[in-house]
Structure formats: C-alpha cells, structure tokens
C-alpha cells in the first residue's frame, strides 16, 4: 500500500505575520531572561546607536520554532534551529515568516525547512529548522 508522505520537498509553510509590538519585544526578552537594556529601554538603546529597542535573538529563535511546529504539528520533534539575523525587528514593524521544505531524509523521518522572516527593512532572519517525525 502506498502511503502519502506527510511532508514533501517544496511544501510551503503558510506565511505567518507577526506584528512587532513593544510588548512582544519586552515580553520575549524577559521570558528568555535577557535583560540587556537595548531590548527594553528605548533611551539606552538610542544612546548605544540604535533607533529604538529591538527584538533579541532568543525571541526570534522562539518565534521560528513556533512557526514550524504550528504548521508541522505537535507530534514532530525539533532537532536543530540555525538562524542568522540581519535587519533588526523594531517596534511598529511587521515580520512575515515564510518557509519551505528543503530536504527530507531517505526514510522520510528527518525534515529540514528553510525559513525567512522579512520586515520593512529587509530580512530580519534567515535560517533552517530541522525536525524528526516520531513513528
């Protein structure tokens, strides 16, 4: 019997639009235990050359992980998240996450997804997320 595989190379993850609010930036920073002032104090962020507070990398990581498991389902297990940051996520901007399945192992149990998160300044994040499917 031929079973339709759950994931195929080229599958696209429906885009997820995330409003970059001050609340998200601060909540993400504190939930990740990151008290660097540039993630919660606009005045100090400006004094350090930034135009405002900006999202920390741990929040980006959390959002990227959520983006993939929201789509793939609670049964998959993340094995790797690899991200590179570009344009900062400042309050008032919007980030759109998109992704596409780029690789599947021979046995079909290891899946790799290429992800991109863009805001009005350009690419905030590019990277890959890998997960395994538990049989």
């Amino acid at each position: 019997m031929l079973v339709q595989p759950e994931f195929s190379v080229g599958d696209e993850i429906p885009a997820l639009t995330i409003p970059i609010t001050r609340t998200l930036i601060v909540a993400g920073a504190i939930a990740s235990r990151d008290y660097q002032d540039v993630h919660h104090d606009a005045e100090l962020a400006k004094a350090k050359g930034s135009k405002d507070i900006f999202m920390n990398i741990l929040t980006t990581n959390g959002l990227v992980g959520r983006f993939v498991t929201d789509w793939a389902g609670p049964h998959v297990r993340l094995t790797e998240i690899s991200i590179r940051l570009g344009a900062p996520n400042y309050p008032g901007d919007t980030m759109v996450l998109s992704g596409v399945v780029s690789q599947i192992s021979q046995d079909g149990e290891q899946v790799k997804v290429d992800i991109t998160g863009t805001n009005t300044l350009g690419n905030h994040v590019t990277g890959t997320v890998s997960f395994s499917i538990r049989k």
Binding site: Q36, L58, E80, I81, I83, R84, L85, P88
Partner: peptide, 15 residues
C-alpha cells in the same frame, strides 16, 4: 561598546 547577536545555531539532544 555596542553589541548585536548575529547567528545562533542550536541542536537538541532530547526535549
């Protein structure tokens, strides 16, 4: 004196 994170690669052994 300023700092930004640029890359993060994580792999997980188990949940």
């Amino acid at each position: 004196s300023s700092v930004v994170a640029t890359n993060c690669d994580q792999s997980y052994g188990r949940y």
